[in-house]
């Protein structure tokens, strides 16, 4: 059995990569993908702890996170499509007005 700690370290590395993507990139969709990466890193932590403590609650949380990630993807991508129609770009620097 692989120690839970290792999964946590992998999850931490992936989460940090996601943070780095969000902080350094300007392409909206890449930022969005980095967020998905962070969400997945958290999912891995949940499942690792679920096995460590023999609790199914962790898995059910992952289930809900997946459902919410799907909703988030739909709305987020709709926002980027809408932004592209108005600004002709999905660079987050171009979204600098409160109204379109």
């Amino acid at each position: 059995m692989i120690p839970t700690q290792w999964f946590l370290i992998l999850s931490a590395i992936l989460f940090s990569i996601g943070v780095c993507g969000v902080l350094t990139r300007k392409n909206g969709i890449t930022i969005f993908m980095s967020i998905e990466l962070m969400v997945n890193a958290v999912n891995l932590t949940f499942i690792a702890y679920a096995r460590q403590f023999d609790q199914l609650h962790g898995l059910i949380f992952v289930f809900f996170i997946m459902a919410i990630a799907a909703a988030e993807a739909a709305v987020g991508l709709a926002i980027f499509i809408s932004m592209y129609h108005h600004k002709d770009s999905i660079d987050v620097d171009d979204a600098n007005l409160m109204h379109w």
Partner: peptide, 27 residues
């Protein structure tokens, strides 16, 4: 700054997980 912050974040997170998150093995 973004690269620096995130790598510092990663290093500290991995360090503390490696040091303190030692859990008992088989269930």
């Amino acid at each position: 700054l973004g690269y620096l912050t995130s790598s510092a974040f990663a290093i500290s997170l991995v360090y503390y997980l490696g040091k303190y998150a030692v859990m008992s093995g088989a269930l």
